[in-house]
């Protein structure tokens, strides 16, 4: 990390030997297959959303840094690019051009820079951007596009939509042959990236596996018409669960520090996701669940830390 002028950051110090910048670009690399799949499935419009979102994130970051008399070049450290990419992956493939711009502004300014920039944010920036858009313009955010090769051009609901969801087979879900957000749709591509991150030791298993495990267990118990009859494979393969569990809940800044904390965090995310999926009015609960648990992270850290440095109380 020599040569960069980061100020001293609070708790989430990165422990791996890699620099922040290297980690950011490796995560972006791990996300690429899924983006390629999204562009292949939905066509050019998804590439447009991804590019607009990434560019606006970097531009807003640089502008805000300039406003605070910091070096605007910090905006190229990869974190803004990653935020933009993740934001785009959580958006439908076709939408007015200004929507990703607003999303990028909210993610970068409201969720990240106002707290002091990288390492200081409490909530996951990309998710704040997505939830902001979801609450503000629910119509655009739920207008889905069918895969390019689908016969009927009329857009359909995502598999998780509660009323009138068409039936999907597991293979379609696994490969992404249905309507959905750009980056969450092809589970195969996401799995490739996730394995890469795990092998490179950029993320640990604790959060994603407890998160997904909890969702599967609870949907199996409560998801069906009677107890223990829920379709947990369906819940694993549809919606943003895999994307959220591997790439967003594991965000270095907004996750707990200890192993015990991560497990609590993962289970909490899982419970909230299932509660919203099965009972809430939104079709998808992953983003809300992660944001909710982000708010609890400081408390989790506080009570799972074995030893406190500095003054006791």
């Amino acid at each position: 990390m020599s040569g960069n002028n980061f100020t001293v950051s609070p708790a989430p110090h990165i422990r791996s030997g890699l620099s922040t910048r290297a980690i950011m670009y490796l995560v972006i690399l791990a996300l690429l297959p899924s983006g390629v799949a999204g562009i292949y499935i939905y066509g050019f419009s998804s590439l447009r959303v991804i590019l607009i979102s990434m560019i606006s994130c970097v531009v807003f970051e640089a502008a805000f840094l300039k406003l605070r008399n910091r070096d605007p070049k910090i905006a190229l450290d990869g974190s803004a690019l990653l935020t933009g990419l993740l934001l785009a992956y959580n958006l439908p493939p076709e939408m007015p051009f200004w929507l990703p711009v607003v999303g990028g502004a909210v993610s970068i300014i409201l969720a990240k820079q106002i707290f002091g920039g990288l390492g200081h944010n409490i909530f996951n920036p990309a998710l704040v951007g997505r939830v902001f858009l979801q609450i503000s313009w629910p119509v655009y955010m739920t207008t889905w596009k069918n895969p390019r090769w689908a016969v009927d051009a009329v857009s359909t609901a995502t598999p998780l939509a509660k009323e009138g969801a068409p039936l999907f087979n597991y293979m379609d879900l696994f490969l992404g042959n249905h309507g959905g957000c750009i980056g969450e749709v092809c589970i195969l591509a996401l799995a490739v990236g996730a394995v890469f991150l795990l092998v490179m030791k950029i993320i640990s298993w604790h959060i994603p596996f407890t998160f997904i495990g909890t969702v599967m267990l609870l949907t199996w118990i409560f998801g069906g018409d009677s107890m223990f009859s829920g379709d947990f494979t369906f819940h694993l393969l549809s919606g943003g669960l895999v994307l959220g569990a591997f790439f967003m809940a594991t965000d270095y800044v907004t996750r707990p520090l200890t192993k015990k904390g991560k497990i609590i965090f993962g289970i909490g995310c899982g419970i909230m996701t299932v509660v919203i999926r099965l009972r809430g009015s939104y079709p998808e609960g992953v983003s809300y669940a992660i944001l909710f648990m982000n708010a609890v992270v400081p408390l989790i850290d506080r009570y799972t830390k074995t030893r406190k440095y500095g003054l006791q109380k």
Partner: peptide, 12 residues
């Protein structure tokens, strides 16, 4: 931001 996260529970 917390309130946004809590919006996930809307319309139960």
């Amino acid at each position: 931001l917390m309130s946004m996260a809590f919006m996930g529970f809307a319309g139960f």
